[in-house]
Design a protein around this nucleic acid. Structure first.
Lengths: 224, 224
DNA sequence: ACAAATATAATAGTATTACTATCGTTTTAG
DNA sequence: CTAAAACGATAGTAATACTATTATATTTGT
């Protein structure tokens, strides 16, 4: 059996009706991930999504307040799932340095294989996170949305990895700044390597982005 | 005399009619910077700008193709101006380490005083760059716009500072990745400190963001 | 098995946005 | 002083981001 019997529990403020509670809901989520990948988030609309799934846009509005909240929802799904991946990959490993290295690999590399964890295609979702996640919290309503818990999953991931940083160097003053720099930086550098190569130094074949952020991290922790 | 007699030359692809060539053009630019600060870029429209300057939106369209290109224009202005600031601040300083330190200060701290370099309020412009600059190159048309030279000024700044990095450590493999990480990271960390403090570690009074990126940079360059 | 609640489809409608077009008047430049 | 360019005023269009209504289908509790 490939499918795991666990399900990610997401902040209920994110939907009117739980998309996990019906086939249509699942279809809305999975198809929106595909469509955002094809169109980009800007050009993605509920009307177009409705056409793909054969339902009118008004039906989609019964699940999600608007397309922005839908993006927040799938982003949350990604970070909850990544938190779980981090936990799995680092338990039973005694060396904190090794655990941090593993974590940075997970945070800086796009997902290449769909684990069939659920109805969601994790490869496509990872693509969305790398290219669109900035739009999730770069909005006029950040504070309000933050208070509702919209970004909890992301903060949990940063907190989890920051704890490892502190374990390695308890005197280090900027663990969260370091980890959020690594995550956001890796996303951005991948985008740069594809579109604005003058802003980066990547050889397509190498894992230069992971390599860079690992060196940066360990040099900082070993010398501060 | 406070006003300097030089003017930044910007990529002519960015406008239909040079906004520097008329009073109305200058007003469009300076008032749009104020309005974007107040409304945020999403809620900023040419119609609203028209109301502020007392002209119909159709007139603004005679200068700029759309609001996105206007944002690219002011961003370009900022980076050209910053390139000039970097040059001024680092000439005649022999130590490359010191030059890099100065550069990182300029790149990571928001502008606090309006230098009256022009009709543009540099403090407000800097605010826009810190909070909205991601939207400049995060668009479906990046490649096309990049080819037209829309991002040249930014790339010039990264190149200039990368050269100093290479001067300090000629073997370092990732000079551009480092500098773009520092710039984008500093912008983001400032945003986090204001809206998502769990993702950072800043004391409002300190220059913790600059401090972090300087330590990161010099540890990396001295140990790689 | 059946009434009541709930979910969905089909359709229509509104306000705003991001433009484009036209045309008459003012300003500017040779 | 005349021709060109710039500008203001106004109108119009297609798309977006919703909201509302109603009829039909499905589920659910008993």
């Amino acid at each position: 059996m490939n499918e795991l019997n666990i399900q990610l529990k997401l902040c209920p403020e994110l939907f009117f009706k739980d998309p996990n509670s019906s086939e249509l809901g699942k279809k809305i989520v999975s198809k929106s991930i595909e469509l955002i990948n094809i169109l980009g988030f800007e050009n993605f609309t509920f009307k177009k999504l409705g056409k793909v799934i054969g339902s009118p846009e008004s039906t989609i509005y019964r699940y999600f307040e608007n397309k922005h909240v839908l993006l927040v929802y799938v982003t949350n799904w990604y970070w909850s799932w990544t938190d779980y991946r981090l936990l799995l990959a680092t338990t039973n490993i005694s060396s904190a340095n090794r655990r941090l290295e593993i974590a940075i690999d997970i945070l800086t590399k796009p997902v290449l294989v769909d684990n069939s964890f659920s109805h969601i295609n994790e490869v496509l979702l990872s693509e969305i996170i790398f290219s669109e996640s900035l739009k999730v919290y770069n909005t006029k309503k950040v504070d309000e949305e933050n208070q509702k818990g919209y970004f909890k999953a992301y903060k949990d991931v940063v907190a989890r990895v920051s704890d490892v940083v502190i374990e390695i160097n308890p005197k280090f003053k900027y663990p969260h700044m370091l980890i959020s720099t690594v995550i956001e930086g890796a996303h951005q550098q991948k985008y740069f390597s594809e579109h604005l190569p003058a802003l980066t130094d990547t050889n397509k074949n190498e894992d230069s982005i992971s390599d860079f952020y690992k060196k940066l991290t360990f040099n900082l922790l070993n010398n501060e």
